[in-house]
Design a protein around this nucleic acid. Sequence first.
DNA 1: ACCCAGGATTTCA
DNA 2: TGAAATCATGGG
Length: 273
Amino acid sequence: MNISVNDFNIQQISDSGQCFRWNRIGEMHYRGIFNGKVCEIFQHGNILDVSGVTKDEFNCYFDIDRDYSQIKELYARDKILKDAISLGEGIRILRQDNFETLISFIISANNNIPRIKKSVELISMRFGKKIYDNFYAFPNMHELSNVTEDELRACGVGFRAKYIVNTCRILLSDEHMLERISDFSNEECKRELLSLQGVGPKVADCVMLFSMGKVDVFPVDVWIKRLMEELYIHKETNIKEIATFGRSQFGEFAGIAQQYLFYARNTIKRILL
DNA sequence: ACCCAGGATTTCA
DNA sequence: TGAAATCATGGG
């Protein structure tokens, strides 16, 4: 299936840190797993060769209906953001599965991206449904509920194993909680997410941004903290203050601005100095 | 051996 | 209420 796109770069999306099941299989050729399917994308310019999913699934997952050009134009008035955007102009905010995103970001706590990817892959291979060949879907909450803390620890999640077990137990007693709260206001949605074990402010923000389409939330991890302190606030402060600052500074699409900054985190400071 | 990673929880002052 | 200690684990 050929699809014409704007503001889309599969390499940048794969490396953006919001998803953990995309991998490079060649030059501008990537494979990812979502909706229980194996999706391959080969990009040449603005043309994608997409296989494995329907066009509706593709459009929803990659947030195709949103006009990123307009957002980038808006943010280009900010000198720092302008440079960040120039490095990741094809980034988009994905709409990923609620449950998979929640568990993945519980695993992300005090962790690094390669290890998160490894754990998510092992959990899928051992406890998820086989799709074909060596490709497995991430387990749903019922499948993951049957997994013990030791089995999870064997996937390299460490002390987070207990959080996953407890969170699954809570969700199993209220199967549609995540869908329900995705329609709540940011404040109420976040309050519900914070009631789950292993979910603090940052993980809650990531779940809302990367799976619920709440693009105005501004997750603050160690990278964003450093970057914001050095480039915007010009002093050391705390995470809560940075989150508040980010939302007021960047407004309606603060989460998208955050992704541009996060993707550019390693090079943006060199450019500006 | 030490520090760090898309932090959260627990403990202590 | 808020700052420190603790939590697994692999890589630099």
